[in-house]
Design a binder for these strands. Structure first.
Length: 691
DNA sequence: TCACAATGTATTTTT
DNA sequence: TACATTGTGA
């Protein structure tokens, strides 16, 4: 491996193998490069002493993990296969898969997804006679999660009385935790907390894991929360070979418990470590970097970094005002067309937005113009009713303790087991102190059920047991097909749908599940089981890549959050308006301006060459058209690096001279793909605004 | 128990 | 606007 291609700080980060190391890596500073080189260097440097299996690299998303692994294998060959690259959560799940029984959970535990979590919270709320409609269960979940992540044990009662939600949370928390365990489930937070407990409370396991993972790397360290840090500290053991890579300016997940302090206080958390700063930006041209620096500069409490680039000049950042959101979409689509005509590939283009809902108009417009696109995340696929139902079947089949899923599907499709029946059975279960499933197995014994219900329940139980056995032998997709056939799922869904097209859409969801099962089986081979499938599903909600040949060069649409770590030659950052960017938060109150600013910074720094910041003067919201105020962040942009465009009157006519000049210049710039060192400076368009 | 209609309410980001 | 939930009637 050639280390001479790295700049001095990068090289230092790569060759410092022992002890704690913090790499402050600004946007576009070649951070991933450093991580991969470092891992390969570890493998090269001490052959026989450091094996691939001794290295753990933690990334923020599964996507990042997959990509990093691929890069490693590409660089170092098959021996890199043994390096464990995954998210904190996936790592925790892996640990628990082996050792969770030491904490009293069943070995085949399930991972509760958000739906399960909310259902459990709602149930606990009802038990406390709290109206689960008057109070938002999601808010309660957020609070519970915060409490868990900050290391607080369930507390029965608050001392200083907070607001209603604090009160509810304290009431509900213990029940929530107990019911999860009773269902043999863990939630996302448990995937971090329980492994930490294993290491803390079981010396043999501490030995086992610290001995195996002697070299740790953490990417996106600024977005780790307290629980992750705790796990990391334990795992680091006595050798403390921790390499943390991150950028405090890109901490955008504090709403999920991320602690910027983890990166700011690294030297206190891991005393005696080294700190390296990567301040050269290899990604963006000067204009883009200037815009980004200007926006982030206004944040107090940063680790001062001075990002610079030698890609001088660059086209000015376009700040565009459109009359409304539809016109904004039209503008974006139109510009995309132009740039593609000039030779930019679709996969070099991204449209970024603050909220998932903003993708709609863009999608419609791109479809209209026949521009291929791909929406990252927000997939909604696994949120679809039918999909959730099928998954719930899996959950019940795998885990009969999962009452939430059981209640969900026991009458889907309708088989005459209604609320009354299940309510009565629940009462019996509680009275006898046994599980709902146990009671269902002897449903015939109860006199108080609606006529015929007992027999129907028994049929259902028998059916589930039969499929539980059937799934033992693999063939997940095939068995599922049979199951859906037997229960008449497709027919029922079709009958339920309002129209033929709606039915097709729903059934496509079902096909999607079967597809994803098939892919999973193909990938995992014989070790594919329904349980491992479900676990993977809750950890990685990415939809299976549709393998449409030829259609893979597409424009990317995603939230700014999802764009972290990615880069594109051409970026549209849309909706630069108050209440959107920065986001208004729910009903006024606490909006975290500093984080919104960082978010804006992240969005801007995704652009390598050309950046559009667009906004709509008016936007359709809730069916009504409302006027919008420009984002305050736009004010911070240095006038000399931006070009203001007002698309007030939508013109369809021939391009103006100014436009022609502008695109002529662009064409010049894009003739050759981004030469390192940058194109000749001052390539900005002649003249100013288009209007 | 179930199907359909009217009514009401929601809107951040994601492992 | 769009969707989910609630209430009504069979």
């Amino acid at each position: 491996m050639d280390l001479s291609k790295l700049n001095p700080p990068q090289r230092e980060a790569v060759v410092t193998l022992e002890g704690p190391l913090l790499v402050l890596a600004g946007a576009g500073s070649g951070k991933t490069r450093v991580i991969t080189h470092r891992i390969v260097h570890l493998l090269n440097e001490r052959p026989g002493l450091i094996m691939a299996r001794n290295i753990l690299a933690v990334t923020f998303t599964n996507k990042a993990a997959t990509e990093m692994k691929e890069r490693l294998v590409h660089m170092a060959g098959p021996r890199a296969q043994g390096v464990l690259v995954c998210t904190f959560h996936a790592f925790g799940a892996e640990m628990l898969r082996e050792d969770i029984h030491r904490l009293g959970w069943p070995r085949k535990f399930a991972i509760a997804d958000m739906g399960d979590q909310l259902a459990n919270i709602r149930r606990a709320m009802r038990e406390h006679k709290i109206d689960d409609r008057a109070f938002d269960a999601r808010k309660v979940l957020t609070l519970i999660s915060k409490a868990k992540n900050s290391g607080k044990a369930p507390e029965p009662k608050p001392e200083g009385i907070g607001d209603d939600y604090d009160l509810i949370t304290h009431l509900v928390y213990p029940d929530y935790q107990l019911s999860l365990k009773a269902q043999g489930s863990v939630d996302f937070d448990d995937l971090l907390l329980l492994p930490a407990r294993l290491l803390r409370e079981h010396p043999d396991l501490y030995e086992k894991y610290t001995r195996r993972f002697r070299y740790l790397l953490v990417d996106e360290f600024q977005d780790t929360n307290t629980a992750q840090l705790e796990l990391l500290k334990l795992l680091a053991g006595r050798s403390r070979n921790v390499c943390a890579v991150g950028d405090d300016d890109q901490c955008i997940y504090s709403w999920r418990g991320a602690e910027v302090r983890n990166i700011l206080d690294f030297d206190r958390l891991f005393p005696g470590g080294k700190e390296v700063r990567l301040e050269q930006n290899y990604r963006s041209v000067q204009t883009v970097l200037d815009a980004a620096n200007a926006v982030i500069a206004k944040n107090p409490e940063r680790k001062a970094k001075q990002m610079w680039t030698d890609r001088k000049g660059g086209t000015k950042v376009k700040v565009v005002t459109c009359p409304n959101d539809e016109e904004e979409a039209r503008f974006v689509a139109h510009e995309i067309q132009k740039h593609m005509a000039l030779g930019i590939s679709a996969d070099d283009i991204a449209v970024l937005y603050r909220t998932n809902g903003q993708s709609r108009p863009i999608e419609e417009m791109l479809r209209e113009k026949n521009i291929g696109y791909e929406v990252v995340g927000g997939s909604e696929f696994f949120d679809r009713r039918e999909v959730k139902d099928v998954i719930a079947y899996f959950k019940v089949i795998v885990n009969k303790l999962d009452e939430i899923s059981l209640l969900r599907i026991v009458n889907v499709p309708s088989r005459g087991i209604g609320d009354v029946t299940m309510e009565r059975l629940s009462v019996h279960a509680r009275g006898e102190g046994v599980t709902l499933w146990t009671v269902m197995k002897k449903a015939a014994d109860y006199e108080d059920l609606p006529p015929g219900a007992g027999a129907r329940v028994l049929d259902f139980v028998e059916m589930v047991e039969r499929y539980r056995a059937a799934y033992e032998h693999g063939q997940l997709a095939n068995v599922t097909r049979k199951l859906l056939e037997e229960i008449g799922f497709r027919e029922a869904t079709r009958a339920h749908a309002t129209s033929a097209t709606a039915a097709d859409k729903k059934l496509k969801g079902v096909d999607g599940v079967l597809n994803s099962l098939e892919n999973f089986e193909k990938r995992e081979g014989p070790k594919a089981s329904l349980l491992t499938y479900l676990n993977r599903l809750s950890l990685d909600t990415r939809q299976e890549e549709e393998e449409v040949p030829g259609a893979n060069r597409r424009v990317t649409l995603m939230t700014v959050h999802a764009s972290k770590g990615l880069e594109y030659r051409l970026v549209f950052f849309i909706g630069m308006e108050e209440d959107l960017m920065p986001h208004g938060g729910m009903q006024g109150e606490a909006q975290n301006l500093e984080e919104e600013r960082r978010l804006c910074y992240v969005g801007i720094t995704r652009a390598k060459e050309v950046l559009y910041l667009t906004r709509a003067a008016t936007r359709v919201k809730r069916g009504k058209e409302v006027p919008r105020t420009p984002s305050r962040f736009l004010e911070d942009l240095p006038p000399e690096v931006i070009e203001v465009m007002d698309m007030d009157a939508p013109r369809e006519g021939p391009p103006t001279t100014e436009e022609k000049n502008f695109f002529a210049n662009l064409k010049e710039r894009f003739k050759k793909p981004a030469v390192p060192g940058g194109p000749p400076g001052g390539a900005g368009p002649a003249g100013g605004a288009a209007r």
